[in-house]
Design a protein around this nucleic acid. Structure first.
Lengths: 252, 252
DNA sequence: CTGCGGCCTCCCGTTACGTGAGGGTCAACC
DNA sequence: GGTTGACCCTCACGTAACGGGAGGCCGCAG
């Protein structure tokens, strides 16, 4: 009994060279050798091979696989449960990607273009606290704040430089439009408002038109923000708020 | 405007080295360089990067990705549709694997052990004629035949030697049990019958107990098969059929 | 006894990066 | 205004997981 390398390879749909490799690194040594030195794979060997291929399919390195399979505290049922869990996660991720693609098609049909950051979210961190899955529901309103905190935590000085530089550009654009008498509900001011919204979305959180309007109000109401605009020109904070509202109106 | 390598890398969740590499091989060259030679990635660059990562995630080589993305006959919508289709297929495959794991758990609970070949089926050929997806339904009854044809097509002479050798062993075991007066519905004969069933499953197709009983009948009814057994011992074909039936009975 | 298919062991090549080495850049802080 | 620290650059060698021969033994079929 036992199978040759070629037979084992054909069964598993892999190459003979791979089996040689697994033998060489000690991941899967055939339990026997013929008198002539031929590799002979037993049924348990094939079982192990199947496990190897399973974990390989899910992106584990051969070294990791060796550790997993040679872990002594491992009854086969636990293995199966773990595999099932891994598969479910991977499927979940791919479904999220599929949903993102669908959204992208939807957006394209409607003529909206996504910011690159929105698109990268799909691949994003699998969220370290993935175990508290229901956390999403609990956030509700403060979702934006959390998102902002998570993102900005990874920013470097260079990033912050870019943030402030970009914010400065937007501010200048608002000031210029204001100074030149462009109406707050005109195309120019609305364009700048949209740039502002993109700026927030890019660097902090997913800024919807609804949220954007809230921000506009805050820029007028909260003296700390208002001062930032009023310092440049008197009446600019209200101008900015109005531009934001005008820009958001068609998307209500 | 534009992002540095580090920023782009952080957005995409990859390393700076990867971006360097993509630049070096021409897969993704930043559209600009600063005076000091710093890479500057524009938003379209990030869009392309997202595409690259998408296809990479699905296992394409960087060279293939370059071909795909630089194909001029490629409106973005077609791209999205293709991506969606690729995702759906991959999800389907993973779901099949998950189902196989579930079956394995089920089998283990019931104390049945799968043949290695059954387990490898999961990974199996994505079926060259995957485009005719409804083919599965059409097969119906001749499923076993098709499976056998598909498998044996890849067998080498060595495989066939193993097949005939193993078949010979089973035949001898039947003959020995028969010669020594072991009852056809006894443990010994049933054990050999089970080995026979495993032999079929291993080398030809998924031989259920139902199918196995059909084979037993055929060994008696079809003179071509009967001769094979009768040549060894008179009455052996009927003995084999009875052993097969006895072995199948508990699994009805 | 010779061919042919399969097996063996080196051993170099390839892909997609990892990992420094050695050295500029640039806003910031003293 | 020099230094510090974070970031950037270009070589250039290292690594993982094999691919693909070269050169040679094994075993059966003709």
């Amino acid at each position: 009994m036992g199978y040759s390398v070629g037979q084992a390879a054909r069964f598993a749909g892999i190459t003979v060279r791979s089996l040689h490799h697994y033998d060489a690194i000690g991941l899967l040594r055939p339990s026997e050798r013929s008198a002539a030195g031929y590799r002979r794979y037993s049924d348990p060997d094939l079982d192990r091979l199947q496990q190897v291929l399973f974990y390989r399919e899910l992106g584990f390195s051969l070294e990791e696989i060796a550790v997993i399979l040679d872990d002594p505290g491992v009854d086969p049922v636990t293995h199966l449960r773990r595999q099932h869990e891994l598969l479910r996660r991977r499927i979940g991720r791919l479904e999220a990607m599929a949903a993102a693609v669908e959204r992208a098609m939807e957006a394209r049909k409607m003529g909206i273009s996504l910011t690159p950051q929105e698109r990268f979210e799909v691949f994003g961190d699998v969220d370290p606290e993935q175990y508290a899955e229901e956390a999403e529901e609990r956030w509700g309103g403060s979702d934006a704040f959390e998102q902002s905190r998570r993102r900005t935590a990874r920013y470097t000085k260079d990033d912050w430089r870019a943030v402030t530089a970009e914010a400065g550009e937007v501010l200048e654009a608002f000031a210029a439009a204001f100074a030149e008498g462009a109406p707050a509900d005109g195309e120019r001011a609305m364009g700048v408002a949209e740039r502002h919204r993109a700026h927030i979305t890019r660097w902090f959180y997913d800024c919807t038109y609804e949220i954007h309007k809230g921000l506009g109000e805050m820029y007028v109401a909260d003296p700390r923000f208002a001062a930032n605009y009023e310092r440049v020109a008197e009446g600019l904070s209200r101008y900015v708020r109005d531009a934001i509202h005008a820009n958001a109106a068609p998307h209500a």
